[in-house]
């Protein structure tokens, strides 16, 4: 299985200590009828400034993995550490942005949502107000500061959620398919905005998606997971590719490679009876 390309261990001694390390993590959850193993001994390291993408088909445990990093569930095996400290519970240094639009508090205005998140974490009210205004400026929603969330479109709600998360200045930003519920045009715009924001602020993000294209555009490094249960299939670089490159050969090559890793045959190639 591991006879593919350059071994990641060869470069390991040169690396600085990772920001987030996931070591041999097995995750299980119980449904009313079964105990489901979501991931099996998954390892990966996220370094400061990474746009690290967890990519895989449904059932590969990528969202469960993200929830474990957020602190919503504990691994049954292995350990997740941020800055060397094990993760025990949810906290603002690992803020998560969800796919669903109802993650904003409906009883608070857009600005109050951000101010509340800050004051709950000990930021003085005045400073929190300034930070909230600045955060809304960066996502281009300053005009909507005093509006209640239900009056915003889906894309705007996601922008507010991102602004709220960024205002908390997390060590790592966790995003669980944040653009999946958006229409294609808005999704593309949001991907570009996220990249622009990353250029400006230089945060670290762990991003879950099931779209190969989104993984390549958004990610600088892609962890490909195989399904049932989730195991690490590959870790790839995509830092050199963005929307501008999406028509190019390198983009397509990577896309085909991921497709082959996930489904066993190249996407663009015509159907063959057997290969060998």
């Amino acid at each position: 299985m591991s006879t593919v390309t350059a071994l990641p261990t060869a470069a390991a001694p040169l690396l600085p200590p990772p920001l987030l390390s996931v070591d041999g993590v097995t995750l299980r959850y119980t449904t009313p009828e079964h105990v489901v193993t979501a991931t099996q001994r998954v390892d990966f390291q996220v370094h400061a400034g990474d746009r690290f993408v967890l990519l895989g088909p449904s059932g590969c445990g990528k969202s469960t993995l993200l929830k474990a990093v957020a602190g919503f569930l504990d691994p049954v095996e292995g350990e997740i550490r941020l800055d060397g400290r094990p993760i025990r519970r949810p906290g603002p240094e690992r803020v998560m942005v969800f796919q669903e639009f109802d993650q904003l508090l409906p009883w608070k205005t857009v600005a109050q949502n951000i101010v509340f998140a800050l004051t709950e974490n000990g930021v003085a009210r005045r400073e929190a107000t300034d930070k909230a205004r600045h955060a809304l400026d960066t996502v281009g929603l300053a005009r909507f500061a005093d509006v209640y969330p239900h009056m915003l479109s889906g894309g705007m709600k996601q922008r507010v959620a991102i602004a709220r998360a960024m205002a908390l200045e997390p060590r790592i930003l966790l995003m669980d398919e944040p653009f999946a519920a958006l229409d294609a045009l808005t999704r593309r715009k949001m991907q570009e905005e996220l990249l622009a924001l990353w250029e400006d602020v230089g945060f670290t993000v762990l991003f879950v998606t099931h779209s190969i294209e989104e993984a390549i555009v958004v990610g600088s490094r892609i962890l490909v997971l195989s399904p049932h249960p989730g195991r690490v299939r590959a870790e790839l670089n995509a830092h050199h590719l963005d929307h501008a490159a999406s028509g190019g050969e390198a983009f397509h090559a990577l896309s085909r490679r991921i497709h082959r890793l996930l489904f066993g045959e190249p996407a663009a190639a015509p159907r063959r009876l057997a290969h060998g």
């Binding site: 519970r89 949810p90 803020v95 998560m96 969800f98 109802d102 993650q103 508090l105 998140a117 709950e120």
Partner: peptide, 11 residues
């Protein structure tokens, strides 16, 4: 989602 959102912002 709302519960988790509350927890992830540290409440």
């Amino acid at each position: 989602t709302l519960r988790m959102a509350g927890q992830t912002i540290g409440v």
